[in-house]
Amino acid sequence: MVKDYPKDKKITEPLKQQILKIVEKYHNQVDFVTISSSLRFGMNYDNSFDELKKGTYYNCVRKNDYITPEGYLDGLEVVKMDYRKLYDKYKGIDNVVFIVDPPYLQTVSYTYKNYWNLTDYLDVLDVIKSNRYFFFTSNKSSLLELFQWFEDRTSHANPFNGATQVSQKKNITYQSTYTDIMLFK
């Protein structure tokens, strides 16, 4: 419905109503977080049809397919379970790399099913102490500054010492930005 509509431009009310009619027809089968990520700016995710009806829409729909290179993940075992059980099962094994992507500290996390508190955030850092990892956060979390503060003022080492950091600036809206951060070792 928006394929010919300008990218990142506000969708008119009549077109929004057409979109809502289709979504309402299939509302029991809709992933509202995914739909809202294509129609809203700034990570304004919706969890229900009622929430989706309220927002202002923009054409944020991805125009090209995701690429799936043949054979890229051959030989890789992907495991999904509670991180504590996963860590206990695989810690210290040489050919294991942990993907650590907790909810970003100090960001909206209502799309997650479980509440994630500071203690959980700190506990997950056990994963990176002696294992290879990719760890994701953002500058909004102030996590890197927090650990640098601890290292500078206490006897605790910064858990990210020796990690490589890659950052990418993201636009939430035309006026608001944040920086995605990936650390790996």
Rank of each mutant, 00 (worst) to 15 (best):
N139V: 04
S141R: 01
I99A: 09
V108P: 00
T107D: 06
R132M: 07
K89G: 10
T154P: 04
V127E: 05
N44D: 14
L20K: 03
S109E: 13
K25A: 11
F134R: 06
N64W: 01
K80L: 08
K54N: 04
Y87F: 15
K89L: 04
L73V: 09
F98D: 05
V97Y: 05
P103W: 04
F41H: 12
K185W: 00
E13L: 11
T56H: 03
F134D: 02
V61S: 12
T154M: 03
L143K: 06
K91I: 02
S36H: 03
C60V: 08
Y112E: 07
V166H: 13
L20H: 09
Q106S: 15
Y26I: 12
V2Y: 13
V61G: 06
L125T: 07
K63I: 07
F32L: 01
L146H: 10
Q106N: 15
N59D: 10
D31G: 08
F136D: 03
S109R: 12
T137H: 08
D31Y: 03
D50A: 14
Y90V: 08
T154N: 01
F134W: 11
V100T: 06
L183M: 06
R62A: 14
Y57E: 00
T68L: 13
I67D: 12
V79Q: 06
Y26L: 10
I99L: 15
M43T: 13
Y178C: 07
D46V: 02
M43H: 09
Q165C: 12
K129W: 04
K9P: 00
N131T: 09
E24M: 02
V30D: 09
Q18K: 15
F98L: 04
Y174W: 07
Q165N: 06
T173W: 02
D123R: 14
K169H: 04
K7T: 09
V79Y: 08
S48R: 00
K10A: 10
L146N: 09
N161Q: 12
G92Q: 08
H156L: 11
Y133G: 02
Q168T: 07
G75W: 05
Q18E: 15
M182V: 15
D88Y: 08
Y110K: 14
E24T: 02
T12R: 12
C60T: 07
R153S: 09
E77D: 10
T34H: 09
S167Q: 15
G92L: 06
S155W: 05
K3G: 01
V23G: 04
K89Q: 14
Y104E: 00
I99T: 07
F136N: 11
D88I: 01
L143M: 15
N44R: 08
T34W: 13
Q168P: 01
K9V: 11
E151G: 07
L76C: 08
V2H: 05
K16D: 09
K63R: 15
Y26H: 14
P159K: 01
D74T: 11
N171K: 11
Y83G: 00
N131Q: 03
P6A: 09
T119N: 11
N158Q: 01
D152P: 00
K3D: 13
Y178W: 06
L86I: 01
S141M: 01
L73I: 09
L73H: 08
N139E: 06
Y104I: 03
Y110M: 02
I172Y: 10
I19D: 01
V30T: 14
D4A: 05
F184A: 05
S138Q: 03
Y57N: 03
P102A: 00
N161T: 14
K63N: 11
M43Y: 12
D126C: 08
T107K: 11
Y110E: 10
